[in-house]
């Protein structure tokens, strides 16, 4: 049972993101800003640091592919960027100590990296022609604010859950 807990949790977060985008009242602040939930990738970040890097990268690939297939229909962007940002996160965390405040902050930084990388990718394949400053204003900053709120609520439960998962792995 414990074995399935992590994939189930991540799958739930995956569906939750779609549902959040659908039900979130998008017209607050006149609909000027776009809030993107990034709780799934934050959970994967936490998994790399409290669980194991290998699992983080594998789940990054799986859910990146799923995200591409279901939500964007351009296979490759998230398939590539989820594992990459998870790896980047792990690299940064190796340089500094792993207390929960720092983990949360660095995960937000990596969300910003992910957002910017997605923007650059979309710019390259001509999905958008928006300039960076309006992207930052409309999407990047609101997204970071929203995910800060997510992290504050989810950091401790996620940490506990993945530590349990890591223990179970070690005992196997």
């Amino acid at each position: 049972m414990k074995r399935f807990l992590v994939p189930l949790l991540l799958a739930f977060l995956f569906v939750f993101e779609g549902l959040f985008a659908q039900l979130f009242p998008a017209d607050i602040f006149n609909g000027d800003y776009i809030f993107v939930p990034r709780i799934l990738i934050i959970a994967i970040f936490f998994l790399t640091i409290y669980g194991s890097l290998k699992h983080g990268i594998i789940y990054g690939f799986v859910f990146g592919l799923l995200f591409d297939m279901v939500y964007t229909e351009i296979i490759g962007i998230y398939f590539f960027l989820f594992p990459l940002s998870a790896f980047l996160f792990w690299k940064i965390m190796k340089l500094i100590q792993t207390n929960i405040v720092l983990v949360s902050l660095v995960s937000l930084i990596c969300v910003a990296f992910l957002e910017a990388a997605v923007y650059v990718m979309n710019l390259l394949i001509h999905i958008t022609s928006m300039d960076f400053s309006s992207f930052a204003e409309i999407r990047l900053v609101p997204t970071l604010v929203l995910n800060l709120i997510f992290v504050i609520f989810a950091a401790f439960p996620l940490k506990r859950q993945f530590e349990k998962f890591a223990d179970a792995l070690r005992n196997d």
């Binding site: 569906v15 993101e17 779609g18 549902l19 959040f20 985008a21 659908q22 776009i34 993107v36 939930p37 990034r38 995200f67 279901v70 939500y71 964007t72 229909e73 997605v118 923007y119 979309n122 999905i127 958008t128 928006m130 992207f135 409309i138 999407r139």
Partner: peptide, 16 residues
């Protein structure tokens, strides 16, 4: 009935 919406809004304004 709409069952989901792409969270990757602004680039992909799609609903399912």
């Amino acid at each position: 009935t709409v069952i989901s919406r792409s969270p990757d809004r602004l680039w992909h304004e799609v609903i399912i």
